[in-house]
Deep mutational scan, measured.
Amino acid sequence: MFKRLMMVALLVIAPLSAATAADQTNPYKLMDEAAQKTFDRLKNEQPQIRANPDYLRTIVDQELLPYVQVKYAGALVLGQYYKSATPAQREAYFAAFREYLKQAYGQALAMYHGQTYQIAPEQPLGDKTIVPIRVTIIDPNGRPPVRLDFQWRKNSQTGNWQAYDMIAEGVSMITTKQNEWGTLLRTKGIDGLTAQLKSISQQKITLEEKK
């Protein structure tokens, strides 16, 4: 169930391209415009997507990853294993993690069937560096609404905000991946996880038929 919630949630996290980005210092504006741009692209490019579902990787690479804190999220997933990894191991892992996100997020976007969304009203940021933004996803086919909290983090150097995690039903996506990959990290280390991520990233994206 959580895996499905995570995939549905990713439908609204794909941010804007650099040329049309919203105010990078306001995570609420980023979330709002990102959702609108993403849904528009999914709707307008269905012919290309249906002809070649792996085209979704391109959308992810162009529109999402430049505005997601990939390395920060990847380091959180590694936890204690990050500090013990060599620079070469980290570089290989982050490259594999990025390719994994292209496949995983692309597969999530393949679930698009006309969903709509509501974003919580903007709250004062103050001096906060981590801000959760509640998004409610509404399914046109009558499924119950899904309420999610996207975690946005302020870059201490640039002042810009980027998304790095999502919490559904009190469970963090980062925590879920830590639990899912924990045994592999304990037995085969970061190299074993890197190899698995490379394998997963090679899987073809498949479209979910409308139910």
Rank of each mutant, 00 (worst) to 15 (best):
L16W: 03
G170W: 06
P124C: 10
Q115W: 07
K37D: 06
G192V: 12
L148R: 14
D61N: 12
L30R: 04
A92V: 12
A88D: 00
A120H: 06
L207D: 04
Y105P: 00
K177P: 10
V12M: 09
A21I: 15
T25N: 08
V77Y: 07
T206K: 02
I200W: 11
L56M: 00
A120S: 09
S172A: 13
L78V: 02
L207P: 09
W181Y: 15
K154C: 07
A22P: 01
N26A: 03
Q89V: 04
I137G: 08
Y82H: 11
A104S: 02
A95R: 13
E208T: 13
I167N: 10
Q62T: 14
F39Q: 12
H113S: 12
Q24A: 10
V68G: 03
E169K: 14
K211E: 04
P124Q: 03
R186A: 12
I167T: 04
K43H: 01
I200L: 11
Q46F: 15
L125F: 05
W161M: 07
L5A: 01
K188L: 08
V68C: 00
S172F: 02
P140M: 02
Q80Y: 10
Q203D: 08
G189A: 14
R41C: 04
I133F: 11
K29C: 10
Q46K: 14
T38Q: 06
S17V: 08
Y81I: 04
N155G: 06
N44F: 09
T58H: 15
P140R: 11
F94E: 10
A95D: 07
A92Y: 07
K211I: 00
V131C: 01
Q202V: 05
M31S: 08
I130E: 03
P144E: 12
Q123M: 05
D191V: 08
Y81L: 04
E91Y: 15
V131F: 11
R134A: 13
M166T: 09
Y67T: 03
A18W: 00
S84Y: 00
D191L: 11
L125S: 05
L148P: 07
Q157W: 12
A163G: 09
S199N: 04
T183D: 14
M7Y: 00
S17H: 09
K177S: 07
A92I: 15
L109G: 10
R147H: 00
L185V: 14
V60S: 08
R143E: 13
F94K: 04
L65I: 15
E122L: 02
A104I: 01
A88C: 11
L184T: 01
T194H: 05
V171S: 14
T158K: 04
M6D: 00
I59H: 14
W152L: 09
T187E: 01
S201P: 09
Y28F: 14
G192S: 07
K43N: 07
E209R: 12
Q118W: 04
F39C: 11
D139N: 11
T206P: 06
L56Q: 06
R147W: 08
W161S: 04
Y55N: 01
H113A: 02
S17L: 03
Q151A: 12
L42Q: 15
P53V: 06
K3E: 14
I130M: 05
K198Y: 00
R4H: 03
A21K: 02
Y55W: 15
E63L: 09
I138Q: 14
Y82T: 00
G114T: 11
Y93M: 03
A108W: 10
Q157T: 08
R186D: 06
G114S: 11
T158H: 12
L64A: 11
N44E: 01
D54P: 04
Q80C: 11
Q107K: 09
R143P: 06
K128Y: 15
P27K: 11
S156R: 08
K204A: 10
Y117H: 04
N141T: 07
I137V: 01
P27H: 10
M7W: 08
T158S: 01
K83N: 02
A34R: 11
E99L: 06
T136W: 07
R90T: 02
K83R: 02
R57K: 07
G189I: 01
P124H: 02
G170T: 07
E169I: 09
K102N: 15
K71D: 14
Y67Q: 02
G192A: 00
A88G: 05
L11R: 08
G142S: 12
L16T: 07
D127L: 00
N160H: 13
Q123E: 05
P66L: 03
R147A: 10
F97G: 09
Y100I: 01
T20V: 03
I13V: 02
A104M: 15
R186N: 00
L101Q: 00
Q203C: 06
S201Y: 11
G192P: 05
A120K: 12
A51F: 05
Y82N: 00
Q202F: 15
V135S: 08
L78K: 07
V146Y: 10
K128W: 08
G142R: 10
I59R: 08
P132Y: 03
K188W: 10
L11W: 01
A95I: 06
A195E: 02
F39V: 04
K102P: 13
I130K: 10
L193Y: 07
D40K: 01
P144K: 11
P132S: 11
A75H: 05
E63Y: 13
R134K: 00
K71Q: 03
K198W: 04
Y164V: 11
Q196G: 06
K83I: 03
Y67I: 02
L193P: 13
Q196A: 15
D139K: 05
G142L: 10
R153K: 12
G74W: 02
K71P: 03
I119H: 12
Y82R: 02
Y100F: 03
S172K: 04
Y112A: 14
E45A: 13
K102S: 13
V146N: 13
L184H: 08
M7L: 02
E33G: 10
A108V: 14
K43D: 00
A51H: 07
A85R: 01
A18Y: 01
R50A: 06
R143D: 15
Y164H: 04
A21Q: 01
P66C: 07
N160K: 03
L11N: 07
Y55A: 08
L193M: 13
G189M: 11
T86K: 04
A14H: 09
A34Y: 05
E122N: 02
M1N: 00
G142Q: 14
E45W: 11
Q178G: 07
G142D: 03
E33Y: 03
Q89N: 08
P121L: 13
T25C: 03
K188C: 06
V171K: 04
G79Q: 01
Q115H: 08
G182S: 08
T86F: 10
P124G: 11
A75N: 04
I205N: 15
A163S: 09
K198F: 13
I13N: 15
I13L: 04
P132T: 12
E99C: 11
L64E: 10
L56P: 03
A195L: 08
K177V: 04
I49C: 01
A19I: 00
P140G: 07
D40C: 15
A163M: 07
L30V: 05
T176Y: 13
I49Q: 15
